[in-house]
Amino acid sequence: MKEQLIKYGLIDVMYVTIGILFCGFALKGFLIPNHFFDGGVTGVSLLLHELYHWNIGYVIVVVNMPLVLMAAFQVNKKFAFKTLLGIVGLALCLLFVPYPQITSDKLLVSIFGGAFMGIGIGMAMRGGYALDGVEVLALYTGKRVSFTISEIILGINIVIFLIAAVKLGLPTALYSILTYYSASRAINFVVEGIEEFTGVTIISGQSELIKEELVMRLGRGITVYKGERGFLKDSFNISAPCDIVFTVVTRLELRKLKNIVHDLDPKAFVFTNVIKETAGGVLSRKARH
């Protein structure tokens, strides 16, 4: 058990180290030289750096420090400590690693600066670290208002980009919004990867055949709900019992599943939804830290 903990600890450190290097590359190679911004606390730090010319390494630590303390009470002390280590590591990277400026093209800076930033934050998240404390602030605020965490983060970022638009011009703010979007998409891909799970619900008159194919051919577990199908406009009083099949697949398996269902019943009703967290059952996934 001790060896496993050491192994996972080293893997976490590797993840956050790679994440810090990517974030440093995004900031010093793309965003800072071109006066661009990102969302969250990093965006606030970049805004303060631009307005008052304070050293970005020190600003990131100072701005995040209240949120690290908040994380100790809102989440747990271990997470707060790991977040502090990640932020300090990013600050040291910005202070001492000499990244070159890659480009001055605004579109390239927006897309690739955001992408590298997202990769860095996502890698740190896979290691259980956080390089931006805005999620902690959203969690704290969400307990006191009726908005979701995503809505709160969006609101915080809107304020940041509005200030940037007033102080530094609308074009800079618009390009920075593109940077934030690129970063958020990269984070989702790094954290979820190609193993992102999708829930699939299938309503079909050929449910018996579909159940057998999903289990025996695709190798997936299924859950069956008892329902009724029919209730059409021209024959509302006519219905028939049916099995509603639900299963969970990765994004790589989704197309194969749809092809299987279509071959068995071209008129089957299929809808999907992204699943963020899974645990238990027969579903398997590589361990994520």
Score class of each variant (00 low, 15 high):
2 K>M: 09
4 Q>R: 12
8 Y>R: 12
11 I>V: 15
12 D>C: 11
14 M>F: 14
17 T>G: 13
21 L>K: 13
28 K>A: 12
32 I>F: 04
37 F>T: 01
42 T>M: 04
43 G>E: 01
49 H>S: 09
50 E>H: 06
50 E>P: 01
55 N>F: 10
55 N>Y: 14
55 N>A: 13
58 Y>S: 08
60 I>C: 05
64 N>H: 06
69 L>N: 06
71 A>D: 05
80 A>W: 13
80 A>D: 10
81 F>A: 09
85 L>E: 03
97 V>P: 15
98 P>H: 06
100 P>Y: 03
104 S>R: 00
108 L>P: 02
109 V>M: 00
109 V>K: 00
113 G>A: 00
117 M>W: 03
117 M>Q: 07
120 G>N: 06
120 G>C: 03
126 R>W: 01
126 R>Q: 15
127 G>P: 04
133 G>F: 02
136 V>G: 09
139 L>F: 10
140 Y>G: 02
142 G>M: 09
143 K>W: 08
145 V>T: 11
148 T>G: 15
149 I>G: 02
150 S>N: 10
152 I>L: 14
156 I>W: 03
156 I>V: 13
162 L>R: 04
166 V>N: 07
169 G>L: 05
171 P>V: 00
177 I>T: 05
179 T>D: 01
182 S>F: 02
186 A>H: 00
189 F>D: 01
189 F>H: 06
189 F>W: 05
191 V>A: 06
192 E>R: 05
195 E>I: 02
196 E>C: 08
196 E>S: 12
198 T>Q: 10
201 T>S: 15
203 I>W: 04
204 S>R: 04
207 S>W: 09
208 E>M: 11
209 L>N: 13
215 V>L: 08
223 T>R: 07
224 V>Q: 06
225 Y>V: 07
228 E>H: 15
231 F>P: 08
234 D>C: 10
240 A>G: 09
241 P>W: 06
243 D>A: 12
246 F>P: 04
252 L>Q: 14
256 K>V: 15
263 D>Q: 14
264 L>I: 15
265 D>V: 14
265 D>L: 14
268 A>C: 09
269 F>H: 09
274 V>L: 11
275 I>Q: 08
276 K>W: 10
278 T>S: 06
279 A>V: 15
281 G>H: 09
281 G>E: 13
283 L>D: 08
285 R>M: 12
286 K>E: 13
289 H>V: 14
